[in-house]
Design a protein around this nucleic acid. Structure first.
Lengths: 107, 107
DNA sequence: CACAGAGGTTAGTTTACACTTATGTAAGTG
DNA sequence: CACTTACATAAGTGTAAACTAACCTCTGTG
């Protein structure tokens, strides 16, 4: 989840998209019109954001309306908070858990 | 900068490294010993983290000691804060500024 | 100074991903 | 019902990046 979120917002264009639909709904076409690239490219970015649950989609006639889903950034925010938190054991625990998942076998 | 930071921590192994050196200094070798991959791979990850200013390096004899630099995550934290902030104009402004940078020419 | 240990650097390979072109599908319009 | 609009999906391409193997550079020690 954290991984999915970070991968999604690591791409600059996707951050711009997120900013565009933060406080208003926009159709895929309206979003695409803000960029240089082709519409399918934006469509793919929207799919990534959607899979990461950083946006919601709503069909309205032939249109698809997108809007940012702020909840999707909660976990990342919590992760970062631990870097300032006094009791850092939580972060270490999380890091070690991830380490377990990352490497299959151990010495 | 934000981009550099996000790219750096988007890689899972680098997040684990960051967790390892969060509250203590570790040598490159000690860090590498926590992973399955070869030392050069870790060395490269450390270079990325260092370039993103997410870790500091200190030479102690033949060793290089690494430690997390929490300040490096300030900007990212500020970016995320705007998603919860009431006055969202700031984020929109940032997004538009990035958009300007992203696409060279405009209609 | 020779040699061993610690670790960064280079070159080459593989995989992931952002992109384009082409095609498919659902919803409105004459 | 033909046609257009709105958008997604598929297939193919180029490039970035994570990795390995091999080499190079320091630092400390006999």
């Amino acid at each position: 989840m954290l991984d999915t979120t970070l991968q999604a917002i690591a791409e600059p264009r996707r951050r711009v998209i997120l900013g565009l639909v933060l406080d208003r709904e926009l159709s895929a076409g309206e979003i695409a019109s803000h960029f240089d690239v082709t519409r399918p490219a934006i469509s793919q970015h929207l799919a990534v954001l959607s899979a990461a649950r950083l946006v919601t989609v709503r069909r309205h006639g032939a249109r698809r309306l997108y809007r940012a889903r702020r909840e999707g950034l909660r976990e990342l925010r919590a992760y970062l908070d631990q870097f300032w938190d006094e009791r850092l054991g939580l972060l270490k625990k999380a890091a070690e858990a991830e380490e377990q998942r990352t490497q299959r076998r151990d010495a």
